[in-house]
Design a protein around this nucleic acid. Sequence first.
DNA 1: ATAATTAGTTACATACAGTACATAATTATT
DNA 2: AATAATTATGTACTGTATGTAACTAATTAT
Lengths: 420, 420
Amino acid sequence: MEQLVAAGTRFMREVNAVAILRRLRTETSMSVSALAKAVGLSRQAVARSLNALVDEGLVEFGSVDRDSTRAGRPAQLVRFRAEAGHVLGLSISPQDLRVAISDLAGTVTAADVTPLGGGASGAEVVETLLSTVRGALQEAGVRTGDLWFASVGTPGIVDPATGVIKLIPSMPGLTGDLLVRRLEESLGCPVYLDNDVKLATQGERWRGAERREDSLVMVHWGERVGAGIVLNGELYRGTSNDAGDVGFLDLFADAPGAAPATVSRHPHGLGPFEAVVGGAEIVRLATAAARRAGDDPLLARIDAAGERAFDAVLDAVTDGAPPALEAIDVVASRFAKGVAVLRAILNPRLVVIGGPLARCGETLLTAVRRHLADQLLDQPALEVSALRDDAVVHGALRHSLDEIERTRFDLGRNGFQEAR
Amino acid sequence: MEQLVAAGTRFMREVNAVAILRRLRTETSMSVSALAKAVGLSRQAVARSLNALVDEGLVEFGSVDRDSTRAGRPAQLVRFRAEAGHVLGLSISPQDLRVAISDLAGTVTAADVTPLGGGASGAEVVETLLSTVRGALQEAGVRTGDLWFASVGTPGIVDPATGVIKLIPSMPGLTGDLLVRRLEESLGCPVYLDNDVKLATQGERWRGAERREDSLVMVHWGERVGAGIVLNGELYRGTSNDAGDVGFLDLFADAPGAAPATVSRHPHGLGPFEAVVGGAEIVRLATAAARRAGDDPLLARIDAAGERAFDAVLDAVTDGAPPALEAIDVVASRFAKGVAVLRAILNPRLVVIGGPLARCGETLLTAVRRHLADQLLDQPALEVSALRDDAVVHGALRHSLDEIERTRFDLGRNGFQEAR
DNA sequence: ATAATTAGTTACATACAGTACATAATTATT
DNA sequence: AATAATTATGTACTGTATGTAACTAATTAT
């Protein structure tokens, strides 16, 4: 366990500078006196720290406060220079590449999406991403040198510690450390790699529900199903970075007609839960229902979509096609069992549904809620992702900002030591 | 988020004193120089802090180090005065009252168990507990005034924040704040109340596996089933202090012959999972198996035990009676599904089985492990509680020590302020 | 115009830690 | 047994931080 030690009076400066920055970053601008009062230090101490921060470029003395109605000499306003640095949030999916740039306050200054063709190689994807980044940098007027950190989310199994993509079935060309290596080389700042669902969870917590829940589960629901878990305010990863792998819940093995649980083996194939609520099953259910109902137009739509049959069914849901709605209701009832299990174990305040199924919105929510109604325990609030496909990018931004927070705006850089 | 601000140089003193104490508490005794080197401060600074700590009574200068083989002037040894204060761990169950006293280093100096008769009123239970405590105090040679903190665990639903027992079906007389009020009044120190399973989890993590796992789930398995969850090194409670309520997992609703899930309502009745793996079901299964096998002696034993039929069956398991083993195997297979669900969601490193079923030891473990073998994901290590019925007391001790740590041996008592 | 009020500046006292050097008490060496 | 080497301790002094206080500056209220 690291143990902080104050080896010199610089330590105090550090602590106080951090406190001042923290306070300042939540306001647009403040007077020195107000800051001193808020932070609990003398005006002089605050002024000294501020001067140091000005030299670092993190803080700026603005104009005199003319708006004040109070008596007395008007205050000099200080402002956090959010533009002192920028961070990048990146998202890679088989469909598209997404880029967002924000300043240190988290204000997005540029964002871009590049659709992805089918047969791009790994190197091509990385170069396309880099050119998208360059475009966004130009748009935001940010030089590469002003980038402090970048985070990138991809599907599949990744190792955040080493930046290696271990398995990414939908984009096998990206396997390995190519992505991170090329990005770091090209951007000249640290690059963090994480699983897209994990990042999306942080994005949802940050920008989605607009209330930073202390405990939420974000379930990505598409062809596959996976969840990100935030507990006590931070992402929980589990022993083998595998927590929230709800696609492998085995809740229906005893149900009549269920597929045996051993059809496939992790991580290549589908888990038992995603097999009964995932995209393939939804298509199957919708097709069967359409056939029963004699809904030939819908059958034709699904058939015409080919590879994109799943999308076609989701479209049909938003259009209100009865067979599609029927399919959704069936998977909703199964999904509800999954939520109930999450509830019993984690007791989260909120469960957010993200991924392709989020498109079904209220239709889906009411169906799941209805099937949850007969549960014994009180159930968590249920919502659909507000960020949709941007959740990953926002989560990546958030991670970048957290990293900056940890390494630059928190204790532990100078004046401190860790005990051995 | 609380933000600490230094209000002067006292702050440094505080930080350093904490660092020194932390280091010192892990050793039996150290020289000042060695301490300085370990903690990363100058000898002078350490000596100054130590003098202050001596005045507080937390540290003691011992004799000169005669054992050292090294050249040079022998060092003055410093020692953490673990006997400067004591904490209490208490456990209440329908069967017995348990008390343990430890010093600040966690060394138990006295422990006592008082069996409980059947029909004691709430007030009687509390007074019996108090007299057990007084006996233990005497045994340890500790005066009431030297008690710094006490923690008590009870079954049922409790509110740790207010110290109120909300529901305790097995000992209804204790409902309310009687217990905590009387204890605080009588012991003259803060008293913390928590659910026994939650405390047992902390006890197991502390003293049980003898390795402080960062993530473990301790499942109490008896008439009812509940779990305590430790993630990232701390107990996770969930939004309504209800996390780990695995008794309410509903995994077998679709199974042929399963009881409908709506028989009972939380928290009075059994949940679906405990209904199929709990004590009552085990007795039912064992009885049925004994009848099938014509094992009349076992039937007689179970019958003679009356209220204690569950105990009788568990005895039969340790004796190796086939019908009892058969029953255990059936519930083990069901329990395995619960473990698999915990694994998929939490991905813990270790699952510990506590409560009455722990008596079945390896028999139970091998059965559960066998039924886990066909799961798709790698499963967590599985163990039986090493502390058994003392897990709660040890967890209570641990909580008391943690509380002392937080309030006395950590930053935040003097010299600090929180920003507004 | 003057008083009151608030902000900013400068000077000084205080507290803490670090460095440097002298001193004390051992073991190792001759 | 005397001396050197080694390690621990003690004292003096320096550097850097904060706080308090007194003074100056720029406004509003009277």
